[in-house]
Design a protein around this nucleic acid. Sequence first.
DNA 1: CGAAATATTGAAGTTATTCAACTGGAGTGG
DNA 2: CCACTCCAGTTGAATAACTTCAATATTTCG
Lengths: 257, 257
Amino acid sequence: MIPVRVDATERVSQTMPTNSSPNFPHLTASCSNCGLRELCLPLGLSADKLKRIDQIVCARRKVGRGEGLYRAGDAFSAIYAVCSGSFKNKLVLHDGREQVMGFHISGDILGIDGIGEERHGCDAVALEDSDVCVIPFARVEEISREMRGLQHQFHQLMSRAIVRDYGVMLLLNATAEVRVAVFLLDLCRRFAARGYSASEFHLRMTREEIGSFLGLTLETVSRHLSRFHETKLIAVLQKHIHILDAPGLKVIAGAMN
Amino acid sequence: MIPVRVDATERVSQTMPTNSSPNFPHLTASCSNCGLRELCLPLGLSADKLKRIDQIVCARRKVGRGEGLYRAGDAFSAIYAVCSGSFKNKLVLHDGREQVMGFHISGDILGIDGIGEERHGCDAVALEDSDVCVIPFARVEEISREMRGLQHQFHQLMSRAIVRDYGVMLLLNATAEVRVAVFLLDLCRRFAARGYSASEFHLRMTREEIGSFLGLTLETVSRHLSRFHETKLIAVLQKHIHILDAPGLKVIAGAMN
DNA sequence: CGAAATATTGAAGTTATTCAACTGGAGTGG
DNA sequence: CCACTCCAGTTGAATAACTTCAATATTTCG
Protein backbone atom coordinates (compact mmCIF):
# COMPACT_ATOMS: atom_id res chain seq x y z
CA MET A 1 0.00 0.00 0.00
CA ILE A 2 1.41 3.33 -1.07
CA PRO A 3 1.15 6.00 1.60
CA VAL A 4 -0.91 8.85 0.29
CA ARG A 5 -0.46 12.41 1.30
CA VAL A 6 -3.03 13.20 3.96
CA ASP A 7 -3.65 16.63 5.29
CA ALA A 8 -2.16 16.78 8.71
CA THR A 9 -5.27 18.02 10.43
CA GLU A 10 -7.34 15.26 8.97
CA ARG A 11 -4.72 12.69 9.70
CA VAL A 12 -4.27 13.32 13.34
CA SER A 13 -7.76 14.25 14.34
CA GLN A 14 -9.16 11.08 12.84
CA THR A 15 -9.59 8.84 15.82
CA MET A 16 -11.72 6.15 14.24
CA PRO A 17 -10.15 4.96 11.02
CA THR A 18 -12.39 3.18 8.59
CA ASN A 19 -9.83 0.90 7.04
CA SER A 20 -7.02 -1.31 8.26
CA SER A 21 -4.21 0.69 6.69
CA PRO A 22 -1.02 0.38 8.71
CA ASN A 23 -1.27 4.13 9.17
CA PHE A 24 -4.20 3.81 11.50
CA PRO A 25 -4.31 1.87 14.73
CA HIS A 26 -7.48 -0.01 15.50
CA LEU A 27 -9.42 1.13 18.46
CA THR A 28 -9.24 -2.24 20.12
CA ALA A 29 -6.54 -2.40 22.75
CA SER A 30 -4.90 -5.42 21.25
CA CYS A 31 -1.40 -5.48 19.88
CA SER A 32 -2.03 -8.25 17.38
CA ASN A 33 -4.52 -6.14 15.47
CA CYS A 34 -2.74 -2.82 15.94
CA GLY A 35 -1.42 -1.06 12.90
CA LEU A 36 1.45 0.27 14.94
CA ARG A 37 2.83 -3.07 16.04
CA GLU A 38 5.92 -2.73 13.87
CA LEU A 39 6.84 0.58 15.48
CA CYS A 40 5.81 -0.05 19.04
CA LEU A 41 6.62 -2.42 21.86
CA PRO A 42 5.66 -5.62 19.95
CA LEU A 43 8.16 -4.91 17.16
CA GLY A 44 9.59 -8.10 15.74
CA LEU A 45 7.39 -10.49 17.69
CA SER A 46 5.82 -13.32 15.72
CA ALA A 47 2.06 -13.64 15.36
CA ASP A 48 1.64 -16.29 18.03
CA LYS A 49 3.80 -14.34 20.48
CA LEU A 50 1.72 -11.27 19.73
CA LYS A 51 -1.34 -13.13 20.89
CA ARG A 52 0.34 -13.78 24.19
CA ILE A 53 1.05 -10.14 24.82
CA ASP A 54 -2.37 -8.91 23.84
CA GLN A 55 -3.16 -8.98 27.52
CA ILE A 56 -0.37 -6.49 28.17
CA VAL A 57 -2.44 -3.44 27.35
CA CYS A 58 -4.85 -2.68 30.12
CA ALA A 59 -6.86 0.14 28.61
CA ARG A 60 -7.01 2.92 26.11
CA ARG A 61 -7.02 6.46 27.34
CA LYS A 62 -7.95 9.64 25.55
CA VAL A 63 -5.97 12.74 26.35
CA GLY A 64 -7.29 16.06 25.15
CA ARG A 65 -5.08 18.76 23.71
CA GLY A 66 -3.13 20.47 26.46
CA GLU A 67 -4.01 17.81 29.01
CA GLY A 68 -1.36 15.93 30.91
CA LEU A 69 -0.97 12.17 30.63
CA TYR A 70 1.17 12.20 33.74
CA ARG A 71 3.08 14.81 35.68
CA ALA A 72 6.55 14.89 37.19
CA GLY A 73 6.29 13.40 40.66
CA ASP A 74 3.24 11.25 39.93
CA ALA A 75 3.57 7.71 41.21
CA PHE A 76 4.75 5.48 38.40
CA SER A 77 2.65 2.47 37.54
CA ALA A 78 2.38 2.24 33.79
CA ILE A 79 4.06 3.11 30.55
CA TYR A 80 2.09 4.41 27.60
CA ALA A 81 2.12 3.73 23.90
CA VAL A 82 0.97 6.63 21.76
CA CYS A 83 -1.77 5.37 19.43
CA SER A 84 -2.68 8.62 17.79
CA GLY A 85 -1.84 12.24 18.29
CA SER A 86 1.33 13.62 19.79
CA PHE A 87 2.89 14.60 23.09
CA LYS A 88 5.67 16.69 24.50
CA ASN A 89 7.72 15.61 27.48
CA LYS A 90 8.62 18.61 29.56
CA LEU A 91 10.14 19.66 32.83
CA VAL A 92 9.01 22.70 34.76
CA LEU A 93 12.04 24.43 36.21
CA HIS A 94 12.17 26.07 39.61
CA ASP A 95 11.64 29.51 38.08
CA GLY A 96 8.58 28.39 36.15
CA ARG A 97 10.28 28.16 32.77
CA GLU A 98 9.44 25.05 30.88
CA GLN A 99 12.05 22.82 29.30
CA VAL A 100 10.88 20.47 26.56
CA MET A 101 12.75 17.15 26.62
CA GLY A 102 11.22 15.58 23.55
CA PHE A 103 8.26 15.14 21.24
CA HIS A 104 6.45 11.86 20.74
CA ILE A 105 4.10 10.59 18.06
CA SER A 106 2.24 7.36 17.37
CA GLY A 107 4.17 4.21 18.13
CA ASP A 108 6.40 5.92 20.69
CA ILE A 109 6.49 4.68 24.26
CA LEU A 110 6.16 7.25 27.03
CA GLY A 111 6.97 7.08 30.71
CA ILE A 112 10.00 4.85 30.98
CA ASP A 113 11.77 7.64 32.82
CA GLY A 114 9.56 6.83 35.78
CA ILE A 115 10.87 3.33 36.39
CA GLY A 116 14.05 4.38 38.16
CA GLU A 117 12.52 6.43 40.96
CA GLU A 118 9.03 4.89 40.99
CA ARG A 119 7.69 8.27 39.97
CA HIS A 120 7.56 10.13 36.74
CA GLY A 121 10.48 12.38 35.98
CA CYS A 122 8.68 14.81 33.72
CA ASP A 123 5.28 15.87 32.44
CA ALA A 124 3.76 14.37 29.30
CA VAL A 125 1.32 16.79 27.70
CA ALA A 126 -0.79 16.13 24.61
CA LEU A 127 -0.14 18.55 21.74
CA GLU A 128 -3.49 17.62 20.21
CA ASP A 129 -6.32 15.26 21.10
CA SER A 130 -4.55 11.96 21.46
CA ASP A 131 -4.98 8.30 22.38
CA VAL A 132 -2.65 6.09 24.31
CA CYS A 133 -2.53 2.45 25.34
CA VAL A 134 -2.03 2.13 29.08
CA ILE A 135 0.50 -0.63 29.79
CA PRO A 136 0.87 -1.42 33.50
CA PHE A 137 4.57 -1.75 34.07
CA ALA A 138 4.21 -4.68 36.48
CA ARG A 139 2.61 -6.56 33.60
CA VAL A 140 5.52 -5.71 31.28
CA GLU A 141 7.92 -7.19 33.81
CA GLU A 142 5.69 -10.18 34.45
CA ILE A 143 5.30 -11.11 30.79
CA SER A 144 8.96 -10.27 30.17
CA ARG A 145 9.92 -12.99 32.62
CA GLU A 146 7.97 -15.50 30.59
CA MET A 147 8.75 -14.30 27.09
CA ARG A 148 12.32 -13.58 26.23
CA GLY A 149 11.21 -12.00 22.96
CA LEU A 150 9.25 -9.31 24.71
CA GLN A 151 11.93 -8.96 27.36
CA HIS A 152 14.60 -8.31 24.77
CA GLN A 153 12.36 -6.01 22.78
CA PHE A 154 11.70 -3.93 25.87
CA HIS A 155 15.40 -3.73 26.67
CA GLN A 156 16.12 -2.62 23.12
CA LEU A 157 13.45 0.00 23.40
CA MET A 158 15.02 1.49 26.53
CA SER A 159 18.49 1.27 25.05
CA ARG A 160 17.36 3.08 21.93
CA ALA A 161 15.93 5.83 24.08
CA ILE A 162 19.41 6.30 25.51
CA VAL A 163 21.00 6.38 22.06
CA ARG A 164 18.38 8.89 20.96
CA ASP A 165 19.34 11.06 23.89
CA TYR A 166 22.96 10.89 22.72
CA GLY A 167 21.72 12.33 19.47
CA VAL A 168 20.01 15.17 21.30
CA MET A 169 23.19 15.93 23.21
CA LEU A 170 25.11 16.08 19.95
CA LEU A 171 22.46 18.35 18.52
CA LEU A 172 22.77 20.75 21.42
CA ASN A 173 26.42 21.36 20.52
CA ALA A 174 25.63 22.29 16.94
CA THR A 175 24.79 25.72 15.53
CA ALA A 176 21.19 26.93 15.56
CA GLU A 177 20.93 26.39 11.82
CA VAL A 178 22.01 22.76 12.14
CA ARG A 179 19.68 22.16 15.07
CA VAL A 180 16.66 23.38 13.17
CA ALA A 181 17.60 21.39 10.07
CA VAL A 182 18.12 18.21 12.07
CA PHE A 183 14.84 18.78 13.88
CA LEU A 184 12.95 19.00 10.59
CA LEU A 185 14.67 15.96 9.10
CA ASP A 186 14.01 13.95 12.24
CA LEU A 187 10.32 14.74 11.98
CA CYS A 188 10.38 13.72 8.30
CA ARG A 189 11.99 10.42 9.13
CA ARG A 190 9.54 9.62 11.88
CA PHE A 191 6.51 10.56 9.81
CA ALA A 192 7.80 8.50 6.90
CA ALA A 193 8.27 5.46 9.17
CA ARG A 194 4.57 5.72 9.96
CA GLY A 195 3.53 5.97 6.35
CA TYR A 196 2.79 9.68 6.50
CA SER A 197 4.16 12.17 4.05
CA ALA A 198 7.75 12.99 4.83
CA SER A 199 7.71 16.12 2.71
CA GLU A 200 4.70 17.91 4.10
CA PHE A 201 3.38 18.11 7.61
CA HIS A 202 1.82 20.15 10.33
CA LEU A 203 3.89 21.15 13.33
CA ARG A 204 1.82 20.46 16.39
CA MET A 205 4.17 22.41 18.63
CA THR A 206 4.86 26.13 18.89
CA ARG A 207 8.11 27.84 17.96
CA GLU A 208 8.68 28.30 21.66
CA GLU A 209 8.39 24.56 22.30
CA ILE A 210 10.72 23.79 19.42
CA GLY A 211 13.14 26.37 20.75
CA SER A 212 12.99 24.97 24.24
CA PHE A 213 13.72 21.50 22.94
CA LEU A 214 16.58 22.70 20.72
CA GLY A 215 18.04 25.01 23.34
CA LEU A 216 17.22 28.12 21.32
CA THR A 217 14.88 31.06 21.68
CA LEU A 218 11.68 31.07 19.70
CA GLU A 219 13.01 34.00 17.69
CA THR A 220 16.07 32.05 16.59
CA VAL A 221 13.88 29.13 15.47
CA SER A 222 11.62 31.50 13.57
CA ARG A 223 14.56 33.22 11.91
CA HIS A 224 16.12 29.98 10.72
CA LEU A 225 12.81 28.66 9.43
CA SER A 226 12.44 31.94 7.53
CA ARG A 227 15.96 31.61 6.18
CA PHE A 228 15.31 28.04 5.01
CA HIS A 229 12.20 29.40 3.36
CA GLU A 230 14.17 32.17 1.60
CA THR A 231 16.74 29.69 0.36
CA LYS A 232 13.94 27.44 -0.89
CA LEU A 233 14.90 24.50 1.29
CA ILE A 234 11.41 24.49 2.76
CA ALA A 235 8.14 26.31 2.43
CA VAL A 236 6.78 27.55 5.73
CA LEU A 237 3.30 28.82 6.29
CA GLN A 238 2.73 29.10 10.00
CA LYS A 239 2.71 25.53 11.26
CA HIS A 240 2.56 23.98 7.79
CA ILE A 241 5.95 22.79 6.66
CA HIS A 242 6.74 21.63 3.16
CA ILE A 243 10.19 20.14 2.67
CA LEU A 244 11.32 21.27 -0.77
CA ASP A 245 14.95 20.21 -0.73
CA ALA A 246 15.64 17.39 1.72
CA PRO A 247 19.15 16.77 0.33
CA GLY A 248 19.95 20.44 0.88
CA LEU A 249 18.76 20.20 4.48
CA LYS A 250 20.84 17.08 4.93
CA VAL A 251 23.94 18.91 3.79
CA ILE A 252 23.34 21.46 6.54
CA ALA A 253 22.49 18.76 9.08
CA GLY A 254 25.49 16.73 7.99
CA ALA A 255 27.76 19.29 9.58
CA MET A 256 26.86 17.55 12.81
CA ASN A 257 27.87 13.90 12.56
CA MET B 1 33.28 3.65 58.88
CA ILE B 2 34.13 7.27 58.23
CA PRO B 3 35.47 7.91 54.75
CA VAL B 4 38.94 9.33 55.00
CA ARG B 5 40.44 11.66 52.49
CA VAL B 6 42.61 9.66 50.17
CA ASP B 7 44.90 11.20 47.62
CA ALA B 8 43.31 10.65 44.27
CA THR B 9 46.39 9.14 42.69
CA GLU B 10 46.74 6.63 45.47
CA ARG B 11 43.08 5.87 45.47
CA VAL B 12 42.66 5.05 41.85
CA SER B 13 45.94 3.31 41.17
CA GLN B 14 45.41 0.95 44.07
CA THR B 15 44.13 -2.19 42.44
CA MET B 16 44.44 -4.58 45.36
CA PRO B 17 42.94 -3.17 48.49
CA THR B 18 44.08 -4.64 51.77
CA ASN B 19 40.87 -4.19 53.68
CA SER B 20 37.20 -4.74 53.07
CA SER B 21 36.20 -1.11 53.23
CA PRO B 22 33.16 -0.40 51.07
CA ASN B 23 35.39 2.00 49.21
CA PHE B 24 37.37 -0.79 47.60
CA PRO B 25 35.99 -3.58 45.50
CA HIS B 26 37.47 -7.00 46.05
CA LEU B 27 39.31 -8.52 43.18
CA THR B 28 37.07 -11.54 43.11
CA ALA B 29 34.41 -11.27 40.44
CA SER B 30 31.59 -11.88 42.86
CA CYS B 31 28.88 -9.40 43.61
CA SER B 32 28.17 -10.68 47.11
CA ASN B 33 31.66 -9.73 48.26
CA CYS B 34 31.98 -6.59 46.20
CA GLY B 35 32.31 -3.28 47.97
CA LEU B 36 30.41 -1.62 45.17
CA ARG B 37 27.27 -3.70 45.44
CA GLU B 38 25.24 -0.82 46.81
CA LEU B 39 26.11 1.37 43.84
CA CYS B 40 26.12 -1.17 41.07
CA LEU B 41 23.76 -3.61 39.44
CA PRO B 42 23.00 -5.62 42.62
CA LEU B 43 21.73 -2.53 44.46
CA GLY B 44 18.99 -3.40 46.89
CA LEU B 45 19.18 -7.16 46.48
CA SER B 46 19.18 -9.22 49.66
CA ALA B 47 22.12 -11.38 50.64
CA ASP B 48 20.62 -14.64 49.43
CA LYS B 49 19.61 -13.10 46.12
CA LEU B 50 23.10 -11.73 45.77
CA LYS B 51 24.44 -15.27 45.97
CA ARG B 52 22.24 -16.18 43.04
CA ILE B 53 23.58 -13.47 40.84
CA ASP B 54 27.23 -14.08 41.67
CA GLN B 55 27.34 -16.12 38.49
CA ILE B 56 26.34 -13.08 36.49
CA VAL B 57 29.85 -11.69 36.21
CA CYS B 58 31.85 -13.67 33.73
CA ALA B 59 35.29 -12.15 34.16
CA ARG B 60 37.30 -9.16 35.26
CA ARG B 61 39.12 -7.19 32.64
CA LYS B 62 41.89 -4.66 33.04
CA VAL B 63 41.88 -1.67 30.72
CA GLY B 64 44.99 0.47 30.54
CA ARG B 65 44.88 4.25 30.40
CA GLY B 66 43.84 5.39 26.94
CA GLU B 67 42.73 1.91 25.92
CA GLY B 68 39.23 1.23 24.65
CA LEU B 69 36.87 -1.12 26.46
CA TYR B 70 34.70 -1.21 23.35
CA ARG B 71 34.30 0.89 20.25
CA ALA B 72 31.29 2.22 18.39
CA GLY B 73 30.19 -0.45 15.95
CA ASP B 74 31.62 -3.37 17.94
CA ALA B 75 29.21 -6.26 18.25
CA PHE B 76 27.39 -6.00 21.55
CA SER B 77 27.55 -8.97 23.88
CA ALA B 78 28.17 -7.69 27.37
CA ILE B 79 27.71 -4.76 29.66
CA TYR B 80 30.47 -3.69 32.03
CA ALA B 81 30.56 -2.58 35.63
CA VAL B 82 33.42 -0.23 36.47
CA CYS B 83 35.29 -1.67 39.49
CA SER B 84 38.09 0.85 39.69
CA GLY B 85 39.32 3.70 37.57
CA SER B 86 37.28 5.80 35.20
CA PHE B 87 36.10 5.97 31.63
CA LYS B 88 34.79 8.41 29.10
CA ASN B 89 32.10 7.52 26.61
CA LYS B 90 32.73 9.27 23.33
CA LEU B 91 31.61 9.49 19.76
CA VAL B 92 33.97 10.21 16.88
CA LEU B 93 32.25 12.52 14.44
CA HIS B 94 32.59 12.34 10.67
CA ASP B 95 35.10 15.17 10.68
CA GLY B 96 37.28 13.49 13.28
CA ARG B 97 36.22 15.68 16.16
CA GLU B 98 35.43 13.79 19.31
CA GLN B 99 32.29 14.30 21.32
CA VAL B 100 32.32 13.13 24.93
CA MET B 101 28.94 11.77 26.02
CA GLY B 102 29.75 11.07 29.65
CA PHE B 103 32.25 10.12 32.32
CA HIS B 104 31.98 6.98 34.41
CA ILE B 105 33.57 5.89 37.65
CA SER B 106 33.39 2.86 39.92
CA GLY B 107 29.95 1.34 40.31
CA ASP B 108 28.74 2.72 36.99
CA ILE B 109 27.47 0.37 34.30
CA LEU B 110 28.78 0.85 30.77
CA GLY B 111 27.53 -0.38 27.44
CA ILE B 112 23.76 -0.41 27.75
CA ASP B 113 23.60 1.82 24.67
CA GLY B 114 24.56 -1.28 22.67
CA ILE B 115 21.44 -3.29 23.42
CA GLY B 116 19.19 -1.53 20.96
CA GLU B 117 21.18 -2.09 17.79
CA GLU B 118 23.18 -5.14 18.90
CA ARG B 119 26.30 -3.02 18.55
CA HIS B 120 27.89 -0.42 20.68
CA GLY B 121 26.85 3.14 20.00
CA CYS B 122 29.99 4.83 21.23
CA ASP B 123 33.55 4.25 22.39
CA ALA B 124 34.41 3.65 26.05
CA VAL B 125 37.98 4.71 26.78
CA ALA B 126 39.77 4.38 30.11
CA LEU B 127 40.96 7.69 31.55
CA GLU B 128 43.40 5.80 33.79
CA ASP B 129 44.29 2.16 34.40
CA SER B 130 40.94 0.62 35.24
CA ASP B 131 39.15 -2.60 36.03
CA VAL B 132 35.73 -3.73 34.91
CA CYS B 133 33.47 -6.69 35.52
CA VAL B 134 32.36 -8.23 32.24
CA ILE B 135 28.66 -9.10 32.43
CA PRO B 136 27.39 -11.03 29.41
CA PHE B 137 24.10 -9.45 28.52
CA ALA B 138 22.45 -12.77 27.66
CA ARG B 139 23.11 -13.76 31.25
CA VAL B 140 21.52 -10.56 32.56
CA GLU B 141 18.38 -11.35 30.60
CA GLU B 142 18.46 -15.01 31.61
CA ILE B 143 18.76 -14.34 35.31
CA SER B 144 16.30 -11.45 35.03
CA ARG B 145 13.67 -13.89 33.85
CA GLU B 146 14.14 -15.92 36.99
CA MET B 147 14.66 -13.14 39.51
CA ARG B 148 12.25 -10.29 39.50
CA GLY B 149 14.49 -8.39 41.92
CA LEU B 150 17.35 -8.28 39.46
CA GLN B 151 14.99 -7.66 36.58
CA HIS B 152 13.52 -4.63 38.25
CA GLN B 153 16.90 -3.38 39.36
CA PHE B 154 18.17 -3.57 35.80
CA HIS B 155 15.14 -1.72 34.48
CA GLN B 156 15.65 0.97 37.09
CA LEU B 157 19.27 1.27 36.12
CA MET B 158 18.38 1.88 32.47
CA SER B 159 15.61 4.26 33.41
CA ARG B 160 17.97 6.25 35.59
CA ALA B 161 20.38 6.52 32.68
CA ILE B 162 17.57 8.18 30.72
CA VAL B 163 16.80 10.58 33.56
CA ARG B 164 20.49 11.39 33.84
CA ASP B 165 20.49 12.23 30.16
CA TYR B 166 17.61 14.63 30.79
CA GLY B 167 19.89 16.35 33.25
CA VAL B 168 22.60 16.64 30.64
CA MET B 169 20.15 18.14 28.17
CA LEU B 170 19.12 20.69 30.75
CA LEU B 171 22.74 21.44 31.43
CA LEU B 172 23.41 22.12 27.78
CA ASN B 173 20.89 24.95 27.82
CA ALA B 174 22.55 26.71 30.74
CA THR B 175 25.33 29.30 30.66
CA ALA B 176 28.93 28.15 30.61
CA GLU B 177 29.37 29.20 34.24
CA VAL B 178 26.43 27.06 35.33
CA ARG B 179 27.59 24.10 33.29
CA VAL B 180 31.02 24.10 34.87
CA ALA B 181 29.60 24.51 38.37
CA VAL B 182 27.13 21.66 37.86
CA PHE B 183 29.88 19.49 36.45
CA LEU B 184 32.01 19.99 39.55
CA LEU B 185 29.12 19.41 41.94
CA ASP B 186 28.12 16.27 40.09
CA LEU B 187 31.62 14.90 40.48
CA CYS B 188 31.51 15.76 44.20
CA ARG B 189 28.25 13.95 44.63
CA ARG B 190 29.43 10.85 42.85
CA PHE B 191 32.70 10.71 44.73
CA ALA B 192 30.91 11.19 48.02
CA ALA B 193 28.53 8.32 47.24
CA ARG B 194 31.60 6.11 46.92
CA GLY B 195 33.07 7.25 50.18
CA TYR B 196 35.72 9.43 48.60
CA SER B 197 36.33 13.03 49.53
CA ALA B 198 33.73 15.27 47.98
CA SER B 199 35.81 18.37 48.55
CA GLU B 200 39.06 17.41 46.96
CA PHE B 201 39.79 15.31 43.92
CA HIS B 202 41.83 14.76 40.82
CA LEU B 203 40.27 15.35 37.43
CA ARG B 204 41.16 12.40 35.27
CA MET B 205 40.04 14.16 32.11
CA THR B 206 41.48 17.11 30.20
CA ARG B 207 39.86 20.52 29.86
CA GLU B 208 39.16 19.61 26.28
CA GLU B 209 37.23 16.51 27.33
CA ILE B 210 35.28 18.45 29.92
CA GLY B 211 34.54 21.08 27.29
CA SER B 212 33.40 18.50 24.79
CA PHE B 213 31.05 16.98 27.36
CA LEU B 214 29.68 20.36 28.42
CA GLY B 215 29.37 21.72 24.91
CA LEU B 216 32.04 24.35 25.49
CA THR B 217 35.53 25.02 24.24
CA LEU B 218 38.46 24.12 26.44
CA GLU B 219 39.25 27.82 26.80
CA THR B 220 35.82 28.55 28.20
CA VAL B 221 36.16 25.73 30.72
CA SER B 222 39.57 27.00 31.74
CA ARG B 223 38.33 30.56 32.08
CA HIS B 224 35.46 29.58 34.34
CA LEU B 225 37.62 27.35 36.50
CA SER B 226 39.98 30.30 36.85
CA ARG B 227 37.11 32.59 37.73
CA PHE B 228 35.84 30.16 40.38
CA HIS B 229 39.38 30.10 41.70
CA GLU B 230 39.54 33.92 41.84
CA THR B 231 36.22 34.10 43.66
CA LYS B 232 37.44 31.46 46.12
CA LEU B 233 34.75 28.96 45.28
CA ILE B 234 37.40 26.41 44.45
CA ALA B 235 41.16 26.03 44.41
CA VAL B 236 42.52 24.75 41.12
CA LEU B 237 46.02 23.49 40.58
CA GLN B 238 46.18 21.75 37.24
CA LYS B 239 43.99 18.71 37.61
CA HIS B 240 43.69 18.99 41.40
CA ILE B 241 40.40 20.50 42.43
CA HIS B 242 39.59 21.61 45.95
CA ILE B 243 36.01 22.64 46.54
CA LEU B 244 36.17 25.55 49.00
CA ASP B 245 32.58 26.78 48.90
CA ALA B 246 30.15 24.10 47.81
CA PRO B 247 27.10 26.19 48.82
CA GLY B 248 28.41 29.02 46.67
CA LEU B 249 28.75 26.68 43.72
CA LYS B 250 25.25 25.40 44.37
CA VAL B 251 23.88 28.91 44.17
CA ILE B 252 25.38 29.24 40.72
CA ALA B 253 24.27 25.75 39.70
CA GLY B 254 20.81 26.42 41.13
CA ALA B 255 20.15 28.85 38.34
CA MET B 256 19.48 25.75 36.30
CA ASN B 257 16.62 23.82 37.91
C1' DC C 1 -15.77 39.93 17.32
C1' DG C 2 -12.19 40.84 20.39
C1' DA C 3 -8.63 39.19 23.49
C1' DA C 4 -4.84 36.34 24.02
C1' DA C 5 -1.52 33.56 22.03
C1' DT C 6 1.69 32.84 18.42
C1' DA C 7 4.84 34.29 14.95
C1' DT C 8 7.89 37.47 12.41
C1' DT C 9 11.45 40.82 12.00
C1' DG C 10 14.86 44.46 13.35
C1' DA C 11 18.40 46.50 16.34
C1' DA C 12 21.23 46.35 20.31
C1' DG C 13 23.57 43.74 23.64
C1' DT C 14 25.75 39.62 25.66
C1' DT C 15 28.16 35.43 25.62
C1' DA C 16 30.97 32.13 24.00
C1' DT C 17 34.20 31.09 20.23
C1' DT C 18 38.18 31.69 17.54
C1' DC C 19 42.76 32.89 16.91
C1' DA C 20 46.98 33.67 18.96
C1' DA C 21 50.64 34.06 22.26
C1' DC C 22 52.61 32.28 26.12
C1' DT C 23 53.49 29.26 30.40
C1' DG C 24 54.46 25.17 32.78
C1' DG C 25 54.85 20.01 33.39
C1' DA C 26 55.82 15.40 31.94
C1' DG C 27 58.44 12.51 29.49
C1' DT C 28 62.59 11.49 26.43
C1' DG C 29 67.08 11.05 25.12
C1' DG C 30 71.71 12.73 25.03
C1' DC D 1 70.97 15.57 35.15
C1' DC D 2 69.70 18.83 31.96
C1' DA D 3 67.93 20.33 27.58
C1' DC D 4 64.40 19.56 24.48
C1' DT D 5 59.95 18.67 22.92
C1' DC D 6 55.22 17.94 23.30
C1' DC D 7 51.01 18.44 25.36
C1' DA D 8 47.90 20.73 28.46
C1' DG D 9 46.50 24.78 30.26
C1' DT D 10 46.00 29.84 30.76
C1' DT D 11 45.00 34.35 29.16
C1' DG D 12 43.94 38.28 25.91
C1' DA D 13 41.72 40.49 21.85
C1' DA D 14 38.72 40.27 18.03
C1' DT D 15 34.84 38.06 16.02
C1' DA D 16 30.66 35.53 15.40
C1' DA D 17 26.45 33.71 17.13
C1' DC D 18 22.66 33.81 19.72
C1' DT D 19 19.67 36.37 22.90
C1' DT D 20 17.11 40.16 24.45
C1' DC D 21 14.12 43.83 23.82
C1' DA D 22 10.76 45.86 21.08
C1' DA D 23 7.40 46.64 17.52
C1' DT D 24 4.16 44.61 14.55
C1' DA D 25 1.44 41.03 12.21
C1' DT D 26 -1.32 37.02 12.25
C1' DT D 27 -4.02 33.37 14.06
C1' DT D 28 -6.81 30.99 17.34
C1' DC D 29 -10.38 30.50 20.43
C1' DG D 30 -13.81 31.72 23.77
